[in-house]
Design a protein around this nucleic acid. Structure first.
Lengths: 357, 357
DNA sequence: GGACGCTGGCGAAGCGCTTCGACAAACCGT
DNA sequence: ACGGTTTGTCGAAGCGCTTCGCCAGCGTCC
């Protein structure tokens, strides 16, 4: 009898390679993993067979035997108020970096919730987990602590104990914006923030930016009002009007809502306020947005690329059992473009024409 | 001697469950998979043990034994000119649908290129592949044909032979836009299209929309000019100016570049053309954009959700060896909002004030 | 020249699961 | 009462890989 006759998969296996190269299976494995010394001549023979047969190790078998899936999970937010392009930048940076560490990326959406995380981790489908858009009091944080798998958070929860977190230092970012505006002579500043839903659910970056703005303003002794802001044009317009109603002598705006930058400019134009002549604008947004706006925006970019890279590299370190810092904050850098200028000594009037200066 | 003493993984295995429930390993497997009849009483005993121990099957072992990874790959585009929010919508729809079929999603970026696909498929990391943003003459198409794994394309290549493709019927979408405008009495229509890079690399949807617009215009005997359009405000402005220069009596615009809709409205406002009084605008863009614009835009939405669902369900069918149609085109539907109105009998003048009507 | 350490390679034991064939026990019709 | 089905369960053989322990051969060093 010819055994039980399951059909062979078609793909060559490691023993095909071993047979073809005239060596033991284990030798092939060691050639491929480099975990033991193999003589030059044998190595080359094996590698030649590998190429000739078009051999690719079976991921399942490898994962089973080595207890390593070589896959990491990326949990992306999918809810309202997220900044889609930034999220995409993160995602691509993560995928690219992961590949550089010979890992693939499994995509999870946060609406699968904690049990999604649990399923993935318990099933050993992934070696580690990267979580984006962490809230200050995120339900997933305790789960991550006891998950038994390495994890890295992008964003800061309130309690970072026993975690590994990476993020832009949004607190500093808020400060940097204000510092820049104050150095240009602005004394009445407003922050047009994230949608209020984002504040409400306690998303760290929004709160931290606001705190940075407020603190820097206080330090400089200038006035700062902050307002959440939804993402549609009408709402933005209303908010801008509201700001000027509250503070007629407003001469500078910090905008941290990338979807709002276009509408903000439109609203200012509609109100007859010129940028930067009458109002200076600093945005916290991807460089691409800032570059394409008109005028080009002075901005503090969110270095999604860099954060993604760091996050992956920290996760890899944890996967390999190395220690990692609890919190890694990236220093913000402000790029001056065309939307900020020295404050005029005489405030603009309201009819849409700048005052004489 | 106590064997070779590899450390146990910590997670309970199927044999822990079997022991706890007092049955054979295979019985547990059959309870979990439902592939053989198991008596009510045994099933319940096993399920109780599963819950009690917190058992989750090991993904690698399962994949190895069953030759099924229960994972599909999603290849996302990451290059210029892609419509980020639409892509995200696809991605989330795909993840959600895949979970409904008990599959997870592995994220690949198209810049890993063909060899990325090959690696994934040959290593049996995934059971099938979903490819987005397919070009008319995509290098990956021949590869997909000979990959030996099921695949579904989102978008149409020139030759769909031996493939499975899903997309919105962009040709019809172009027609529908024109039909709507013509029915409102517009006789001078323009299409503001995708960035020229998108046309250049032969992305199907851009060409198909343009063809639909041109064809419908010809059918109605109305004039239609089409222009590619980059995504930044200045460029959009220039294009809009160019359109009116070419065709001063232009009264309707079809915009199929979601990133351009905001700037288009701004440009029209700057030129003193009111929407919809002087110019009607139809957009091909996600509903969300159309809703949030001011005025709200009449649009043909790209049903990313629906396409993603269809794509996954087709892929699942292929994974299970069932036949699938070569091409699935979704019917576009036009939602009338506030940006289209009957053409005025007297064309608008150029100084920004509408002519008497 | 024998004890010693290296190097390079081999064989075999799993990793945790699925699935096939076997087989008691219960049920059927006659 | 007896062959013939079902029905429910078990045991064992892999799936393709990693890794541990072992050993043959060879140069080294007193």
């Amino acid at each position: 009898m010819s055994g039980r006759g399951r059909v062979p998969s078609g793909q060559p296996t490691i023993s095909d390679v071993a047979r073809h190269a005239g060596v033991a299976v284990s030798t092939v494995s060691y050639v491929l993993s480099g975990k033991r010394a193999i003589s030059e001549v044998t190595r080359n023979r094996v590698l030649a067979s590998v190429r000739l047969l078009g051999y690719h190790p079976n991921a399942g078998a490898r994962a089973l035997a080595s207890r390593r899936a070589n896959v990491i999970a990326l949990v992306l937010p999918l809810r309202s108020g997220i900044q889609v392009p930034v999220v995409m930048q993160f995602a691509t940076a993560v995928v690219t970096s992961a590949r550089r560490h010979d890992h693939d990326v499994l995509l999870l959406t946060s609406d699968e919730g904690p049990q999604g995380l649990h399923r993935i981790a318990a099933g050993a489908l992934v070696d580690g987990v990267l979580v984006m858009d962490v809230e200050l009091h995120d339900v997933r944080v305790p789960l991550l602590r006891e998950l038994g798998r390495p994890s890295v958070l992008i964003g800061l929860p309130a309690d970072t104990d026993a975690l590994t977190c990476v993020d832009l230092d949004f607190h500093r970012a808020g400060q940097v914006c204000v510092d820049h505006l104050v150095s240009l002579g602005h004394r009445r500043i407003a922050l047009l923030g994230a949608p209020s839903a984002v504040y409400d659910r306690g998303t760290g970056f929004a709160h931290r930016t606001r705190a940075g703005v407020v603190e820097a303003a206080a330090r400089h002794g200038v006035e700062a009002v902050t307002l959440p802001c939804e993402e549609n044009a009408a709402e933005v317009h209303a908010r801008v009007v509201e700001l000027f109603a509250r503070q007629p002598e407003l001469s500078a705006l910090v905008v941290q809502n990338e979807a709002a930058v276009g509408p903000v400019q439109a609203a200012l134009a509609a109100l007859g306020r010129r940028v930067p002549d009458d109002v200076s604008v600093v945005a916290v947004c991807p460089d691409q947005f800032a570059e394409h706006a008109n005028p080009r925006l002075t901005s503090v970019p969110v270095p999604a690329e860099e954060i993604g890279r760091q996050a992956v590299s920290l996760l890899m370190r944890k996967v390999h059992g190395e220690p990692t810092p609890q919190v890694t904050l990236l220093e913000p850098r402000l790029t001056v473009r065309d939307s900020t200028a020295a404050a005029s000594t005489v405030p603009a009037v309201h009819d849409g024409r700048a005052a004489a200066r």
